[in-house]
Amino acid sequence: MTLVFQQILNGFVVGGTYALFALGFTLIFGVLHVLNLAHGAVFMWGAFVGLFTVTSLGLPLYVAFIAAMLAAGLISVLVDLVAFRPLRARGSPEFAAIISSIGVAQILMSLAQIASQTQVYRFPFGTFPIVFYNVLGLRISLQQIVIVASVVVLVALLLGILFATSFGRQIRAVAISERTAALLGISVSNIHGLTFFISGALAGAAGVIIGIAFNSVHFLMGEPYLLRGFVVIILGGLGSITGALAGGLIFGMVQTLSIAFLSSALSDAILFGMMFLILLVRPSGLFGALHRQVRVVRQ
C-alpha cells in the first residue's frame, strides 16, 4: 500500500511539470485560438539556456531558472513574430499557422542540434543537493519538494497576472473578442506578444525543472512533451487553465502508476486511449464547461 502512495506522490510531482508545460500551450490556444506546435522547441531551448547558465557561466540554479524563463519567453515572442503574425495579417486560416509553427519548431531544433553537437547534456553533479525526507513512510526528495513549490508559485503568478492585473484583463478581453478589445483601445498584437512571452516563460521554467529531474537536456527533448502536452490540454479542455492543471496532474499520475504496476510499454497506450475516450464522450474536455470564468478561450 505504501508503494501505491509513493507512486501517487511521484506521479503528482511529474504531473506538476506536465501541467507547467501544458499551461503555456493552452494559454496560447485560449487567447489566439491556434495550436503553437513550436511550444516544445521553446521548452527545449529553456532547458538549454538554464543548463548553459549553470555550466558555462557558473551561476547558481535560481539565476539559471530566471534566465531560462526570460530567454524562452523571448524565443516564444519570436515564434509569434515569425510563425503567426504574418499569417494573421493576411487573414490566413488557422491551419496555416499550425504548419508554420511546425516549421519554426524544426528550425529551433536544428539550431539546438548544432549548438549542442547532437549531445545529451547533464546538469553538473551537485547542482541540486540530493536530500531525502521520510514523511509518513513515504520517501520525498528535496528536489520533489522544490519542483512542487515552483509549480505552485508559477501557477499562482499566472493566475495573479490573468485575474488581478490590467494586463490579465486585456489578455482575457482579447481572448473573448479581438474586435471589442481593439475598440476599447487595446493593442491586440501587443497582447498576443505578451501572451507568447508568458507562455514561453512557463515552458522555460518547465524545461529547467525537467532537465534537472531527469538529468538530461538534448535537442529532441521537446517533442515527447509536445505530444503529452497535447493530450493534457485535450483532457482538460482546450484553452482551460484549470483543465491544463488538472489534466497535467491526471496525466502524470496515470503515467507513473501504469509504469509502476503494469508496464512502461502499456503506459502510452493507456494515456492515448484516455485521450480518445475523452474526445469521444466529452470533446470539450473534462473541465470544459465547469470553469467558464477561469477559461480563457473565446466564447
Binding site: R172, I176, S177, Q299
Partner: peptide
C-alpha cells in the same frame, strides 16, 4: 458597437 459587445465572462 452594435449588439453592445459586453465581455460576458468578465
Amino acid at each position: 458597437p452594435e449588439g453592445r459587445q459586453i465581455l460576458g465572462p468578465l
